[in-house]
């Protein structure tokens, strides 16, 4: 792997390798001295065009635990409104010899653009781009799920995938980079994925995704998922008539106390409730659910550092197990001779 841009083009082999290295990194986090010399002398730039304290400090902690030098570059607002183009910013970082650029950007595809443009040689890590992908979030979710699945099955976590697991993702899939990255990664790892949400917040084209779609959350819960992942509802969706009111949304698609009780009633003792944060308590998730023993919210945060350490380590320190470059076939043209 040269870059980590999406989970859509991440092979099962590379995904498992990332998760296994993350297990090793997690062990470092349990030590008294939480630091490895692996990236000493290397420079990691956190290039954030969008506010995200949580993701930034997670990457910062990951890089520092690997002894990398970290530069935080907060370029909030669109690059155009700031007057400096992404190209100029990239070339500035190149001139400063950045080894890796962790980029968060409001425009879908900005990390891919950075990686493919030739403006910069550094490894590019997508820390969330528009409504496209958030691959390290999906990796930390998969890591969390894998640990849970291993504990339930009484097996070691490392080396295993998510075969047999059923994961329900609920909410604003249309605008969610977390949902997209999870759909690709979890299915690559063998899990079965279900989506539930209002039809207005499921993308046109979702029918081609490797998952089933439910408009009714209770119907979806009746499918007995092993994990329920609640997505954050952005306040601005209210203004665009995606649903009539937040109360109606909450009643139909919120994980409220009633649905928490439903898990018990269905005998789903081992089903966990996930949320990528930050949570809208009382909107997409009730406080009781967020604070229940089923909640993995804090474990997800903790695992985020381990997964990001693994990503930076594999991209920058190289990987002896690296496999062949993954294919990006662009079926660009109508095949020769294809005629109506």
């Amino acid at each position: 792997m040269k870059h980590l841009l999406s989970t859509h083009d991440l092979s099962a082999r590379n995904a498992l390798r990332l998760l296994d290295v993350a297990e090793e990194m997690a062990a470092v986090g349990d030590r008294e001295i939480k630091k490895l010399p692996a990236l000493r002398g290397r420079t990691v730039v956190n290039l954030f065009f969008e506010d995200s304290t949580r993701t930034r400090i997670s990457f910062e902690a990951a890089a520092k635990r690997l002894s990398a030098d970290v530069i935080n570059f907060a370029a909030k607002g669109s690059s155009v409104s700031k007057g400096e183009s992404l190209k100029d910013t990239a070339q500035t970082l190149e001139a400063m010899s950045a080894d890796a650029v962790v980029i968060r950007h409001p425009a879908s595809g900005a990390p891919a653009r950075l990686a493919a443009s030739g403006w910069i040689d550094a490894a590019v890590v997508n820390a969330g781009d528009g409504t496209h992908e958030h691959p390290t979030q999906a990796l930390l979710d998969a890591f969390t799920l894998r640990r849970h699945w291993a504990r339930v099955g009484g097996t070691p976590s490392a080396g295993t995938d998510l075969t047999g697991m059923k994961v329900l993702i609920v909410g604003d899939v249309l605008h969610s980079r977390v949902a997209r990255s999870n759909v690709w990664l979890l299915t690559t790892l063998g899990a079965e994925v279900l989506l539930a949400g209002p039809p207005t917040l499921l993308p046109i084209g979702v029918g081609a995704w490797p998952c089933t779609v439910h408009y009714d959350l209770d119907d979806a819960l009746a499918q007995r998922p092993d994990a329920v992942m609640m997505l954050r509802l952005q306040a601005e969706r209210m203004n665009a008539a995606f649903f009539p009111s937040t109360r109606e949304y909450s009643r139909r698609w919120g994980f409220d106390d009633g649905r928490l009780a439903l898990l018990d009633a269905l005998g789903l003792d081992d089903t966990v409730v996930m949320h990528p944060g930050p949570m809208n308590r009382g909107l997409e998730i009730s406080s009781a659910a967020a604070d229940s023993p089923r909640s993995t919210v804090l474990a997800q945060v903790r695992n985020g550092v381990s997964v990001r350490m693994a990503a930076l380590y594999l991209l920058l320190a190289g990987d002896p197990h690296d496999d062949v470059p993954e294919q990006h076939d662009l079926p660009a043209l109508i095949p020769e001779g294809r005629t109506p």
Binding site: S108, D129, T131, H132, R177, R180
Partner: peptide, 18 residues
């Protein structure tokens, strides 16, 4: 709108032009 609304826009997370 950024691109044709369909299977590809769903994956790319770009606003659709239906």
């Amino acid at each position: 709108a950024q691109m044709n609304e369909g299977d590809v826009s769903a994956v790319l997370g770009l606003a659709g032009w239906p």
